[in-house]
Design a binder for these strands. Sequence first.
DNA 1: GATAGCGCTTGATATAGGTCAAACTTGGCC
DNA 2: GGCCAAGTTTGACCTATATCAAGCGCTATC
Lengths: 244, 244
Amino acid sequence: MQKIISLQHSGTACSVCNLRESCLPAGISPVEMAQLEELASMKRTFRRGDYLYHSGSPLKSLYAIRSGFFKTQVLHENGLEQVMGFQMAGEIIGMDAISTDVHTCSAVALEDSEVCELPFGKLEELGRKLPKLQRHLHKIMSREIVRDHGIMLLLGSMRAEERLAAFLLNLSQRFAARGYSPSAFHLRMTRQEIGNYLGMKLETVSRTLSQFQEAGLISVRNKAVEILDAKNLRAFFGYSAAPI
Amino acid sequence: MQKIISLQHSGTACSVCNLRESCLPAGISPVEMAQLEELASMKRTFRRGDYLYHSGSPLKSLYAIRSGFFKTQVLHENGLEQVMGFQMAGEIIGMDAISTDVHTCSAVALEDSEVCELPFGKLEELGRKLPKLQRHLHKIMSREIVRDHGIMLLLGSMRAEERLAAFLLNLSQRFAARGYSPSAFHLRMTRQEIGNYLGMKLETVSRTLSQFQEAGLISVRNKAVEILDAKNLRAFFGYSAAPI
DNA sequence: GATAGCGCTTGATATAGGTCAAACTTGGCC
DNA sequence: GGCCAAGTTTGACCTATATCAAGCGCTATC
């Protein structure tokens, strides 16, 4: 399943990567950056539908997404299925595997994507030498915990409208943080995947999007979404910040 | 709110603590244990209802629960509320605060409890010297991520019956792992709190418990629960392992 | 440029779980 | 030991969302 399109040992270095401020190297010195660059030198490209890792496969590395879009999901033998998240450039994935040395979810590319591979053993080793890197790794893991808490709040306490509004605003915010338009973007995932992630059926996703459009909050045409009235969309979940 | 009943600098050491195999010191050598003991020497006791930390308070330490029961929860200004988990002896809490150096949820004692305080800065520092400790800390953080994924699956994909069955079996398993009866135990939390955690109303919790009792799967009398037919209870969520 | 298939929308209907309400139990406190 | 508040159970009814179903429209492939 996992087709590796290209392996590069040079590629773009952390020090010149435009994601460096939000990715793993955030806040470390140039000298330290050089050491991290060496560790992160392995790049891999993926086509839409390719797996970055499978549930059940052993922990080897964490992965920093350089470009593209992934989803992570759990597939239970009993048929239950849950999308755990949609990850984009600058985000680190694979931390679920540290606990048992085996991945507990799968990561699939939703569009052509590129990742930097971070061999976990070496990353820990370097963390022992570079306290700032160590701290940052801890922060990234903790951020994942906080993100998951946000989704638990969403799934446990919000109504369908609120969940979808939170989802759209969260995407908007993350696109904005990467220099893309916060108001107009393309969804990389299907209604089915959105619904699965948000604990609702695809029909409900579709209906709720139509309803938002009807109310003049957004404009949707297939995967193209435009947020027209972020303020009132935000009101759907009580003026709180996007908790995803 | 946070009443500190006692502060002890001696207390029970990790090396003689009966939780050492499941707690932070798991798998480290006696020499290393001594260093960890020094770090974890501060004990604190809490009465039912006391806060261990508040949402918004700065990160100081992680906490290893020595005895008792806690819940962690987020309270949103807009009224939304979500119980993130129920934690018992041997579990480490507070990792939500590492991301931003501020706690994002609150921890409340559900019964009289005792915790070992682990100053986070010192813990990281010691981790740099003891790779096994470092790895174990990472495993504990990752375990929290995996646990949260399990709850996301539960909240996003399961029906009320399945959630409650999963909840009871998870408690059972955790009590068993601590040497208590896996079949008979006391719930430390209210129906309200269970419901909030599982994304359902307290009436639904009550009704579903009654329904389980009707079906001969459990016996409930207030907070006293006995699991009579774990096999069929497990069948409620497709024979999968408790995903909490 | 035609066609097949997948993804999406929309409608009609069903239902799990929520809401409201009342009565019962229990445990903490004076 | 009795009282009060909080927690729990159970019933009746309601609503948000699921389910089932049909048709439409992209988009990708030849």
